[in-house]
Amino acid sequence: MPYIAGVAVHRPQPTEEPSLEELAFAAASAALADAGLDREDIDGICLGASDQLDARAISSMHLAGPSGGCLRDEVKVADDGSVAFAAAVSRIEAGVSHRVLVVTWHQPGASDEMAALGVNPEPIYARPAGLHPWAAEAMVVQDFMRAAGLTVDDVDAWVAQAGCTGAPPGEWLAYPLRRSHLPPASRAAVALVLTAAPAAVGVRGLAWGADAAGVVDRGGVLGSLPGIATMAYRQAGLSSPAEVPVETTDRSAVRRAVAAVGLGLVDIAKAHQALEGGQLARLNSSGGLWQSNPVFAAGPECIARATQHVRRGASKAVAHASYGFAGQGNLVTVLGQVKSV
């Protein structure tokens, strides 16, 4: 498996108004600098982008160049930024590329997220019934809360206790999901440099997969996440995930609990108690999406954070991205220290 030689998360200052191109350029440049490489050294580019969120018909036309893709072997992956990471891993494992730059971004002002996501459901049956992706997310959350014995008051309390600064409390998005349960979207671009040559952080395990968009078709409240996590852990020889730093895309307050259970950190019957009792301090110690939520790039930011955990001394770290329609997609990667570098 490849190595992570460079990472960067570029967050512009509130007073700055960078274009998407400037965002991507800044992140790519910073990741290359972190890896000690320049653009000429790169032989592959994997972009992770959503045309809807970028409000462009083929956003990579404009963004491939600033991301480092000028006269390079470039591909755009559109499921999620984290899946672009998986594509980059595979092309290095295949031996066709040796130094791949993954670049992904989110600019909340580029589009109205609620409207942009509204065209995602199937148009004949689901869309006329009002099945917005956030309504589907509420259905998943409700299933999980029922199984875990959680109430809306519990979730409200978590949000208040954590000092989360989302929307004001009270307004329903779709029961039992309040707007205040969602971390606000933020501007950022994330870039990762993957190499075939050893670096201080290695990709030790990687698995990903997609469940059906339909919530009732997923075979359980957690869908395929436990199996995906087990596969990644097995590749990495990780037997105790609860003992290493774990970074997850907690796209709503309940998603942190879903990840804790799905990733095997705690049993569902004890999730409530573990989260309230502070027994999961290694889960999103960075602050998760409440600290930074570049929606489409949030998964890669988790990978960047896990990389930093390993660089600071953790023997291993886990990054988990939940994406797609009501979290139908999951990617789990395990990063580890490389002693010989």
Partner: peptide, 23 residues
């Protein structure tokens, strides 16, 4: 929008890996 989300069920993925490409 994002047709990979709808396609996942039709293609019977059930947790198998999916990569949607758009160039």
């Amino acid at each position: 929008g994002h047709p990979e989300q709808t396609a996942a069920a039709a293609l019977g993925l059930g947790g198998k890996p999916l990569v949607r490409v758009h160039t």
